[in-house]
Write a protein that binds this DNA or RNA. Structure first.
Lengths: 350, 350
DNA sequence: CTGTTAGCGCGTTCAC
DNA sequence: GTGAACGCGCTAACAG
């Protein structure tokens, strides 16, 4: 492998000159520049990025630690879109992306420490934040550039990108209200997750707008799996025989919920309208296709990447806290509440 | 940030000694070793991996270029599982993983060149091989360590991992034969793809085993999308009114095929049995759940990673060409061909 | 404009 | 057992 010295020797100049023509860091006479350029070509020379990094104290690399991929298969399309956004924006700025997968939270922290202290990357992106996320505590303490996907504890001040889950759910519930539904259930996420509150708040505010009183019986919580949605829906149906619609906090759970609806001998979209959240890939292919709230996952990735790189470059951030708006995707899992539906609803009280 | 010099000064020894205790590269007196160790701790010192890489001419990093992620959403779970396998095995060997996404083939090549010539990684993994893959040509020419997921041109000799698509399809078709089906269609992939031939061969051999003659009318080809499967199935049904089963070369296409079956007023699993290939996440959740051939994607990732690292370490490869066996996953999209089905099949000839 | 040289942080001889 | 010195490939500062 040719080095800068080889090029210098071949072109009959010094290494300094070669460096200058490579980096445009000083004006070099046309003729010598040409000599250098052709020497580079002949030797098939490419600067060694490691040596560059050592000298510049920059790796031009950012790090991303994914949550245990094999276990989070609930949301593969989501992770991949995020990755695509991050990666594309990295490319645009000449950065590389170091990806690791961790199975536990402790392991994630270990990885960050290794990567960041070992100077393998200039900064990192963290996802799935928790309220008192120890990674955030660590990164702030060590003064390491990072951007988070998701909010956390209000005490900490750090740059993040998040989706407006409240507005998203509000849109979904408003849509159900517009279709004439009044008995609308809500299936929430486990409360330790940062976003569960936001989504519930959206449900609340949509109902309040219409002066509809909140009923505890209409609100249940489930695990973030298909099964979680299934059991949550069963409970909901049992508690509320007159239910005509449900807002579910995640598509995966919505899939389970629809199964429960079918099992109860009811029809999704006719007897019970269902709205999900995430717009996972399966949502569109399911029978019936699921109406849901789409997160701009790719854009989130782009924003995360862009902000982190700005941070690394010492630039001022345009916005330190970015909240992106989700979008209602109307498909076929919802229907207008007809009078007949109502009587039918009563009929199944047995 | 503390360097090795700081540690040496603090411990009252030379940098050489510090290096020795860190890397266990020479025996050091217990007492001095302790002094060094505590100096390391006090200074919160961590070796700079960039400097190490420069010195050792090794980055302990491998590179993976994903196909245009946002476009290949057909198979998100597949990519993620592969990534998980690669990443886990990397971790086991102390390697990091550099991930990039490329939208076109030319871009992929560019990325490999940049990463490999710039010595950002010690080797790379390539996926979705083609018959005359220019990346393979390049990597062989430049003598860069790499492992491919998928076979290619027979002229080239390089290490790869692949799935035995032929055996997989054969299993699927045998299963259909065991259920009594005789008029079994085949929906193939675009022929430029390396795996399309293997899968077709599996179909052929399964039928030949039973002495069933091949009929060109039963074999169609489609694009690797849901729509591709949809149109392919329509053609198949039109050409063969007496069809009772179909082997589809990809789950995504199988989903489309099932839609076409439904649209023709037929029932999947009853009138027409369908077998897919891949076991994408949606396969299990679909109505009806799809019987399919599962690729050991995670294991493939592990193998790729392990082989590449062996290559980088200059070790002899246990196997240079690894073929992994896929597995038939029986779900509900197939049924026994009853006599009634046959008459029903005739009935729809109009 | 171009050449020389001193590091960047570390591993590694080779003396002692 | 330990230390001094050199080199990995490159950039940058300074001379000329």
């Amino acid at each position: 492998m040719a080095t800068i010295k080889d090029v210098a020797r071949r072109a009959g100049v010094s290494v300094g000159t070669v460096s200058h023509v490579i980096n445009n860091t000083a004006s070099v006479r046309e003729e010598t520049k040409d000599r250098v350029l052709s020497a580079i070509k002949e030797l098939n020379y490419h600067p060694n990025s490691v040596a560059r990094s050592l000298q510049s104290r920059r790796t031009n690399t950012i790090s991303l630690v994914l949550p245990a991929i094999e276990h989070s298969l609930g949301e593969p399309s989501y992770l991949l879109q995020l990755l695509a956004g991050i990666s594309d924006e990295c490319k645009r700025h000449g950065f590389d992306l170091l990806v690791s997968a961790a199975s536990s939270d402790e392991e994630r922290l270990t990885i960050y420490q290794r990567i960041v202290r070992g100077k393998r990357a200039d900064g990192c992106i963290i996802t799935s934040t928790k309220k008192d996320d120890e990674r955030i505590a660590y990164l702030i303490k060590e003064d390491i550039p990072f951007v988070a996907f998701g909010r956390a504890n209000d005490e900490w001040d750090f740059p993040y990108v998040d989706v407006d889950g409240e507005a998203g759910v509000r849109q979904g519930v408003r849509y159900l209200l517009d279709l004439g539904h009044r008995r609308i259930g809500f299936i929430g996420l486990p409360s330790e997750l940062m976003c569960s509150q936001h989504r519930l708040a959206g449900y609340r505010s949509a109902l309040e707008e219409q002066g509809i009183e909140l009923e505890p019986n209409l609100i249940v919580e489930g695990k973030t799996t298909k099964e979680g949605g299934y059991y949550a829906m069963k409970r909901l149906l049992k508690l509320n025989p007159d239910l005509t619609a449900v807002m579910v906090s995640s598509d995966l759970m919505a899939l389970g919920a629809m199964e429960a609806v079918r099992e109860a001998g009811l029809s999704v979209g006719k007897d019970i309208s269902v709205v999900g959240f995430d717009d996972i890939q399966m949502a569109a292919s399911y029978q019936p296709p699921l109406t849901t709230i789409r997160q701009p996952t790719y854009r989130i990735g782009v924003m995360l990447s862009r902000m982190l790189i700005q941070l690394i470059n010492g630039e001022e951030l345009d916005e330190r806290r970015v909240i992106l708006q989700p979008e209602l995707i109307v498909r076929e899992s919802c229907g207008r509440r007809e009078e007949t539906t109502l009587s039918q609803g009563k009929a199944r009280e047995r």
